[in-house]
């Protein structure tokens, strides 16, 4: 029987994401010497967007534009059921988790391409390029951790303080968070002065709410995934305190750097990927011998 608090955690995942977003915006504002919005502003924004009328322009009335955001949100919500406090666990479910994370971004791209706007298309193209930069690295890092710990599923994963055992993969995961969450210097898919909001540009109402929520839910998701792997969930207060600290670090880096081009991101993360692969080879050698 699953603990009821775990079910509550999964059901409240969007609320957690919006709270994280509120904290992020507030932190960012303080770093820029602004007052910033109220902590609950993302909740108000989402509720307002959900209450808007449904409208789709004729040229955008394709199935991907209409349902892409919803599917994207669905996928990201499902990942919360797998990790970090799994409701159900089965063999090699971490592979499914990696696929779902990739699918969330895939639907972001599809939503952008389907939106019949040059800004959406450029945003989607940039996201495609940055996917090359981070998704393989993310998969390699996750597999390295599971390989090292010998766990077959997320439920069995009990490695505590993994960063002392696998320093390179831990650092790699922390760095990958920057580009996966589209933080500066790697926020090219949503570079506001260049292409408005990228894939979001043509969206409005409920679809915008879903698409934004799925992007906002990736933030706690990636932070929880990173900490689940490098810290472990044995101490819950430590886990949540560390997640807020990581949010602070990401926001800080976001605020003190300017935007690089997408090719810089790809070049940088190729180096990260090489380091991650080296550690995977080292771990395989250790496990086999």
């Amino acid at each position: 029987m699953v603990d009821s608090w775990r079910i509550a955690f999964v059901l409240l995942a969007p609320a957690i994401a919006l709270l994280f977003e509120g904290i992020r915006r507030r932190l960012g504002a303080r770093m820029q010497s602004r007052v910033g919005p109220p902590l609950l502003q993302p909740f108000y924004d989402t509720i307002k967007l959900l209450s808007k009328d449904d409208f789709v322009a004729e040229k955008e009335s394709n199935i991907f534009f209409q349902y892409g955001p919803f599917v994207s949100l669905l996928f990201v919500w499902v990942i919360f059921a797998l990790m970090p406090f799994p409701l159900a666990s089965f063999e090699h479910d971490f592979i499914l988790m990696i696929y779902l994370i990739i699918l969330v971004d895939a639907f972001y791209i599809v939503s952008g391409l389907a939106s019949n706007s040059p800004f959406g298309i450029i945003g989607a193209m940039r996201e495609m390029a940055s996917i090359i930069a981070y998704e393989i690295g993310l998969a390699v890092a996750v597999i390295t951790f599971f390989f090292y710990s010998g766990a077959n599923s997320i439920g069995e994963f009990t490695l505590v303080n993994g960063f002392t055992h696998l320093p390179v993969s831990s650092l790699g995961l922390l760095l990958l968070g920057l580009v996966t969450l589209k933080k500066r210097p790697f926020d090219t898919p949503e570079a506001h002065p260049e292409i408005f909001d990228g894939a979001f540009t043509e969206y409005s109402g409920k679809r915008l709410a879903f698409l934004r929520l799925s992007e906002q839910m990736k933030e706690p998701l990636l932070i929880f995934l990173t900490l689940f792997l490098i810290l472990g969930t044995s101490s819950l207060p430590l886990f949540f305190a560390a997640s807020l600290a990581l949010l602070f670090v990401y926001t800080f880096i976001d605020m003190v750097s300017s935007r690089l081009k997408v090719e810089h991101a790809v070049k940088f993360y190729m180096v990260v990927l090489a380091a991650l692969l080296l550690e995977l080879v080292w771990v395989s050698y250790q496990v086999i011998t």
Binding site: Q32, S33, V256, S258, R259
Partner: peptide, 15 residues
């Protein structure tokens, strides 16, 4: 700074 994505610098300079 804002066009280059450095919004913090923009805010400080405006201050």
């Amino acid at each position: 700074a804002h066009e280059a994505g450095y919004e913090t610098l923009f805010m400080y300079l405006m201050r």
